[in-house]
Amino acid sequence: MLELKKVSKALGSFLLGPVDLKLERGIYAALVGPNGAGKTTLQYLIAGFIHQDSGEIMFEGHDIGSLPTDKRSAAFVFSEPALFPNMTIEENLSFACRNEKARDELINLFSLKSMLRKKSSQLSAGEARIVEIARAILSEPSILLLDEPFAPLDAKNRKEISGYLKEYTEKRRICTLISAHSESELDGVDYVFHITNGKLQRSSI
């Protein structure tokens, strides 16, 4: 279980928290709120890109709040493109890959075969996002954090990727937390956490 206990972070005049959040393994959850509500800040804290001023971030009973990012097993997909431009798509996927068989399966499932030899600059925003999600999955994380992942995707891809994320989360018993501006962007999530002005509320669907 991913658990945040009274986590707070001040960034200039903005104050996030104190946030209490519990996310069971196998649950596909979403953080929903307007711009500047603190969605990305909260995800950054879980990923370890920034550190909380107070509170604890626990995973399976262990304090991960003081661990460096690479030791948290928390893969992050940014809202803006972050594929490595010096590598081909195949190399991007291999960079994170821990299981060759899983990579080949994902390449087929996400129809990435035709892109493998291309560079990220040759992909559309939607294609790049699918590759980034695949890359994050291939790192076999315990926590999967996706910041507005569906924004550049069309309705068909959104439904397919969302369906896969839900299935993968349940099957691998990981914690997946995506962020979105509104519930209309979501498909099949187990929980929705609403966040406004740095304060978190939970509601289920």
Binding site: T69, F84, N86, F95, A96, A136
Partner: peptide
């Protein structure tokens, strides 16, 4: 240089040495 690329690689479990040699240096060639 976009720091997101480094953060992204960190979140994929890459060590600093790997990020520096495989991402930072090649992109700053």
């Amino acid at each position: 240089f976009d720091v997101k690329l480094e953060l992204s690689a960190q979140s994929l479990g890459a060590s600093f040495g790997r990020i520096f040699s495989r991402i930072v240096v090649p992109n700053l060639r």
